[in-house]
Amino acid sequence: MRGSRGDAARRPYEAERAHFRDPDLPQGPFAFFRDAGRYAWRMVRLMIIGLICYWLVFLVLNQGFARLTRRWTVAALDDRPVFWINLGIGLVTVVGLLFVNLVMDYARVNLVREEETSAVLAFLSSLGFSLSRLRKALAVYAIPSLLGVGLLVVYRLVVPWSFVNESLGSAGWSHLREPLVLALLFFGQQAIMLGRYWFRVAAWASEWSYCGGAN
């Protein structure tokens, strides 16, 4: 990725390559936690940068615009323009939040993939990368994420809620049916969550792959 630090800066860390990078190295729980510990503090620093960015988005886009438009619309007697303006502010805020999230995603990938130790540089590098390839970067980020959200919709639509509601706490409750329905619901929910996590991992993998290709 552009903007990443040079080989000289990375060299001291190469002696301790992450196990997941080398299939020949042992890949057990110990290796997992070792690798996690290796990136933990960089990720925390990056998260703090992310929080500041989210705060800025709320401060500038949400609070700032809201204050401004409130001044414009305070005397408006018609609900319609006020609604559309507020909707616009809401959408701008959401877009701002998603963009920060996208940048943070690529920054995380950068941190690990490029063995970047500076969270600031990783963030700036990701910002530049995302801005220069916005449409593709957005697509790689959005498609798996939306699929994850789609799973929630599936959950709401597919689960036979009337059957579930009738089975729980009804007068004709049976000692067998109610626990069974609860258990099925619980496992179904966990399957959905697993799917969501899987799509999340898929999103990171896609970003990783795209970063590699873009380089």
Partner: peptide
Amino acid sequence: RAAAKWYVRWIFWLETLFFSAGFF
């Protein structure tokens, strides 16, 4: 029974909430 019913429903939305927080 009522507690179990609500537990199963709310736990999913809590998981979803935490997942969303992690997402950001």
